[in-house]
């Protein structure tokens, strides 16, 4: 098993714990209406990261050049 798979397994274990974090979460003190929903932060964080990676890859199509471009 390589490092990446090991870490994914650890992460899956950790992520299974995350719902219990809602024990500490006070739904009366939410910031806006949007973060009142259970699972807002995990889903938002995940989608944001995937979106950032997609944006980066799209930019790379235009802007990526060889290492020796300026030499």
């Amino acid at each position: 098993m390589n490092d990446r798979n090991k870490i994914i397994y650890i992460l899956i274990v950790l992520i299974n714990i995350t719902p219990y974090l809602y024990v500490f979460y006070d739904f009366k003190k939410v910031s806006f209406n949007i973060d009142n929903a259970i699972g807002f932060y995990p889903i938002f964080g995940f989608i944001a990261c995937i979106a950032l990676i997609i944006i980066a890859k799209c930019l790379a199509l235009i802007l990526k050049k060889e290492d020796t471009y300026y030499d």
Binding site: I8, L11, L14, I15, T18, L21, Y22, F24, Y25, D35, Y41, P42, I43, F44, G45, F46, A48, C49, I50, I53
Partner: peptide, 13 residues
């Protein structure tokens, strides 16, 4: 809770 949620799921991503 919110910070740990965000961080763990970005690690997964």
């Amino acid at each position: 809770a919110s910070q740990l949620h965000i961080l763990l799921f970005s690690a997964l991503a």
